[in-house]
Design a protein around this nucleic acid. Structure first.
Lengths: 138, 138
DNA sequence: TGACTCTTGAGAGCTACTCTCAGTCAATAC
DNA sequence: GTATTGACTGAGAGTAGCTCTCAAGAGTCA
């Protein structure tokens, strides 16, 4: 069993956020000890992991609550839950594509600046450099 | 030259967001036509693309403004801009890793539910099925 | 001329945190 | 036995970045 602090470290989510998620009903099975302190079980960590996954793909909290509630209901909701997982996966794959494109742009920009820096250094080392000032880089 | 609506469609960013970004000073070179309507040049689209990239990696708007301002200043800020691009790239690569892990979890869950559905169907097709009700899936 | 469309800025509203704060409780320090 | 320290609590204010609504102004077609 873990305190909220330990879960925060282990799962890389702030304590504030964990409390916020708990209040939102994302961890329905959490127990409290005799001092009213939340104690997360290994199973609760699975819920944290799942919520973190859904959030990181941009699922809003209302939809996450929906998924959690379906889990609580039991087997009859398996098809709907399966659908949610599939939709989430598609979202994640799209984000992957998007991220790849952004990385291409960043690679391009990186090389662009590398060239600029290289040229500027060459210029400043060359006493014969008489080139006109260059156009502003965007 | 494009109107804000055309840019919104072309770049997949809402008009609201484009106005918000414009107000935040992210597009310093945008011209207006005689009716005070924003007209985006091909070059302005490059700025939109860059802002979109920075945002999608989680750069906050203050840092984006900083980058834009550095661009306006000119060549003397190239090293700092290069540093920002590098840091952004590292961030993007981390996000890629994170996303891959989330996709693994989603794959696992997907198969988990597929199995559950398959088994339930087999059970319901089998008139001799006398198995006890299963444990609640989480 | 008048309906319709597109754009504008101002500003209210929203989501999902994020942070502050006063208070409870248990454990160690003196 | 009290004082201090540190972890936790809930309530609630604050924040970032949109997101949406709205009234006003200009252009376009019938």
């Amino acid at each position: 069993m873990y305190t909220i602090k330990e879960v925060a470290q282990k799962m890389d989510v702030s304590e504030h956020t964990l409390r916020f998620w708990a209040k939102s009903g994302f961890f329905p099975f959490i127990k409290r000890n005799e001092n009213n302190v939340r104690m997360f079980s290994e199973n609760d960590l699975g819920w944290v992991k799942m919520v973190k996954c859904l959030r990181s793909v941009g699922t809003d909290n209302k939809a996450i609550k929906r998924y959690i509630d379906l889990c609580i209901v039991g087997d009859s909701t398996i098809p709907e839950r399966y659908g949610i997982i599939q939709a989430t996966k598609i979202k994640a794959l799209k984000q992957m594509e998007e991220l790849k494109q952004q990385l291409e742009l960043l690679d391009y920009k990186e090389k662009f600046y590398q060239d600029l820096i290289k040229n500027n250094l060459e210029d400043s080392w060359n006493p014969m450099n008489t080139s006109k000032p260059k156009e502003k880089a965007v």
